[in-house]
């Protein structure tokens, strides 16, 4: 479970995230939406312990991220924006590194590696250095890394960006299939994804939460039916 209270992040004069509070329960898939520069990635960086909040608190599975960062990080799988990974390594080497960090061993190690390689269709590129992979494959390696230890909490920053349509579909199916007992937060600019996988959506703009509702709830608030139109209406200030 994730509990966020009055979270604020300032970069100098710029307030990237302002007084954001929400909770996410296991089984929920939270879609994190908002225009470019809204503060989605910044919020995710704070949840995963990369950025220290200016104010407010974050609790992941009962551990305060500022006070017990290692305990919190053990329970999180994180795909950072742009899916950074070590270019000179091959996916096999990279996953082996993550396996060691996550302290997987024995049969579990073998099973988990096999499973994520199969789930993200990495078998053909296993021994090619990551820097020579196409963008979509890099993203898949990043996703594999995030889910490898079967974490209770998944934070995915634009997980389907750069994937081909088939892969987008498969990654959504993957997220749906692991969702029932997990806390999942994904940010995305593809609004059809919200209908497809999210049980709840938060729209933020200029660091502030505008809406926190189910996809159906969003529809009922708006005169439009298409998610894109609803998004535009909300973020351009028609509803708040």
């Amino acid at each position: 479970m994730i509990k966020i209270k009055n979270l604020t992040k300032k970069f100098g004069h710029l307030t990237a995230v302002e007084d954001v509070s929400f909770e996410v329960q296991p089984g929920e898939v939270l879609g994190f939406l908002g225009p470019n520069g809204a503060g989605k990635s910044t919020t995710m960086k704070m949840i995963t312990g990369f950025l220290a909040p200016t104010a407010g608190s974050i609790e992941v599975c009962g551990f305060d991220v500022s006070e017990k960062p290692i305990e919190a990080k053990k329970r999180i799988g994180y795909l950072p924006e742009g899916a950074p990974s070590y270019g000179e390594m091959t996916p096999v080497q990279f996953l082996e590194f993550i396996t060691q960090v996550r302290q997987l061993s024995g049969q579990n190690k073998i099973d988990r590696n096999k499973e994520v390689i199969q789930q993200l269709h990495l078998d053909k590129v296993l021994n090619q250095s990551i820097e020579t992979l196409s963008k979509g494959f890099k993203r898949r390696v990043g996703l594999a890394q995030a889910i490898l230890h079967d974490p209770d909490v998944l934070i995915l920053d634009e997980p389907t960006d750069g994937l081909d349509p088939n892969q987008k579909f498969e990654v959504r199916e993957l997220i749906k299939s692991i969702a029932p007992d997990k806390v999942i937060i994904i940010s995305t600019h593809i609004l059809s994804e919200v209908d497809a996988i999210c049980s709840r959506a938060i729209i933020i703009a200029d660091g502030k939460v505008l809406v926190d509702d189910t996809p159906e709830g969003l529809r009922s608030k708006s005169s439009c039916d298409k998610m894109d139109d609803i998004f535009r209406e909300i973020t351009s200030g028609h509803i708040s």
Binding site: I70, K73, I76, Y78, G82, P84, S85, V101
Partner: peptide
């Protein structure tokens, strides 16, 4: 520069 520091610093390693 490559952004891998974000990966490294969000793994359970001090």
């Amino acid at each position: 520069k490559s952004g891998t520091i974000e990966l490294l610093m969000t793994l359970p390693i001090s």
